[in-house]
Nucleic acid binder design. Structure first.
Lengths: 230, 230
DNA sequence: CAGTGTGAAAAATTTCACAGCA
DNA sequence: TGCTGTGAAATTTTTCACACTG
C-alpha cells in the first residue's frame, strides 16, 4: 500500500489503466468491506467479500490485483487496509463535491438518499431554473439558480442530472462549462459532452423493460444448483 | 415480422438465446425509434438510430439482427415496424404490472417519474410496512400494506425496491413468494433470490464513486477526434 | 447503389488452475 | 497449510469489412 499511489499518479501522471468494468465494481467492494469492518471483522477472505458483493471470488481477486495485490497470501484481506486502498484509489480520500441539477421530486429524493458523506461525497448544491423553487430548502440545502453553477465557489466535481429530458442538454452544457468531470444522468436521453467528461446513464424505464423481457421468459431449466464456482 | 414470435416462443418454448448485453440495449433503441416517429420520420438508418442511442452503428445492426433482421437493405428501418418488433420482443405488448416497495422519498419520486404507461409498464401498487404511510396517497395510488402483496389480485410482474437496506431482504422474500419475476433494486445490498427471479441493481453512491475515479484522472490526451467509427 | 445483415477477426472480460508466499 | 495473485484458456462482446438485396 503506497505502490498504489505511484501506479496511480496522484499528481496526474500516468495512472495504470484499469478497465471500466473493474472500476465499476470497486465501489461495491468498498461498501462490502466496510460492512465487515462494522461487524467487527478485521480480516476477510476473497470468498466472503465476493459473496457479499455479488461476484465470483476469482473476479474479485483479479480486480483487486489491479490495486497492487492488497491481500496476504494464505490469510486474506485486512479490512482496514483494503478500505483505505480502495478509497485512495477511487480518489475519495479528499471528498468530491456533488451537485444535483433539478429540484423536482426525483432531485429532492436523491438529495436525501444515500449518505453522501459516509461515501466520500459532499453534496454542496441543488440547482434549478424554476423561480418558484429557487430559495426553497431541501434537506438543509437551499435550491440555487442554475446560473450560479459556473461561478460556484468550491467548484463542482460531479453532477446528478435529475431534470426532465427537455432541460437536460442545456443544463449539461452549463455543467461542462463549469468544469464538471462526471455526470450521473437520470434523464432518459443521451447527453452530448466532450471526451473529458464522463456520463453514466441510469434509466428506470429501460431497466424495467429489460426485466420485462426476462419475466416473459418461462422459468425453463436453469441448472438448479448454479452458484459462483471457484 | 412474425418470425420473431416463433424465434421467441410466445408459449414459453425456446426463445432464441439473446445475450444480456443485447437485451439491455433494446429498450434504448425502442425509446430512440419512438423519438424519430414522434418527429415524423418513417424510415431511419442504423447510423441515425445508433447516434441517438449512444452506440455504434455496427453494434446496433448486430443487436437488431437478433430480432430477425427487421430492416430493409439499402433503405433502413421502418420506424413503425421496428417499434412494434421491439415491443413484442421485450414482451411489452401486454403491459407488465409493476409495484414499488417503499413509500419513502425515493419510492414516491419514482412513482411519479418516468411515464410508466407510455413505456408498456403499469404501476399498480405501492407497498410499505409503516402504519403511518399505509392509506396515504401518492400520485393517484394509495399506499398498501406490504402484507397484501402476495394476494394482490392482478399479480405483480416486476418490483422496484426502494426500501432501506435493512428492510430490503425481507421485502424481497415476500415478493418472491408472490411470484414476482424481476426486481429493480435501489437498496445498496445484494438480494438473495432464486434463479427464476432477476435482480438489476441501481446504486447511486457506487455510480458516483466510480465517476469520482475518472474525475480524479487528469484529462490526458484522448485522441480528440474520437467518435464511433464504422 | 445505399445501407442492412453477418461471418470472421479483434478486443475485452471472465474463468481456470496452480504457483508462490505468509 | 491456506488463500492470494496471476498467467493461460475460455468465453463474451465488439468491430470490421463486405456480400447481399430492394
Amino acid at each position: 500500500m503506497g505502490e498504489i499511489l505511484s501506479a496511480n499518479g496522484i499528481d496526474g501522471v500516468v495512472r495504470k489503466d484499469v478497465p471500466d468494468s473493474v472500476i465499476s465494481r470497486l465501489p461495491i467492494y468498498l461498501e462490502s468491506v466496510e460492512t465487515f469492518t462494522t461487524a467487527g471483522r478485521s480480516i476477510v477472505s476473497s470468498e466472503a467479500l465476493a459473496a457479499r458483493s455479488g461476484v465470483s471470488p476469482s473476479i474479485l481477486r483479479k480486480d483487486l490485483s489491479h490495486l497492487g495485490g492488497p491481500g496476504r497470501r494464505g490469510v486474506g484481506y485486512s479490512c482496514a487496509d483494503l478500505a483505505l486502498t480502495l478509497r485512495s484509489f477511487l480518489g475519495l480520500d479528499r471528498s468530491r463535491t456533488v451537485a444535483i441539477i433539478g429540484a423536482g421530486r426525483l432531485g429532492s429524493a436523491l438529495a436525501d438518499y444515500a449518505g453522501f458523506r459516509r461515501r466520500g461525497l459532499e453534496l454542496v448544491a441543488i440547482f434549478d431554473v424554476d423561480e418558484a423553487k429557487i430559495g426553497t430548502t431541501i434537506g438543509s440545502l437551499p435550491v440555487s439558480d442554475l446560473g450560479e453553477l459556473e461561478a460556484w465557489p468550491q467548484g463542482i466535481d460531479l453532477v446528478v442530472m435529475a431534470t426532465p429530458v427537455s432541460a437536460a442538454q442545456s443544463a449539461t452544457a452549463r455543467a461542462v462549462d463549469a468544469g464538471v468531470r462526471g455526470i450521473l444522468n437520470f434523464a432518459p436521453t443521451v447527453l452530448d459532452v466532450p471526451d473529458s467528461v464522463r456520463v453514466h446513464q441510469v434509466d428506470l424505464a429501460s431497466e424495467l423493460q429489460a426485466l420485462a423481457y426476462y419475466s416473459a421468459l418461462d422459468s425453463v431449466e436453469l441448472d438448479p444448483v448454479e452458484e459462483h464456482r471457484n
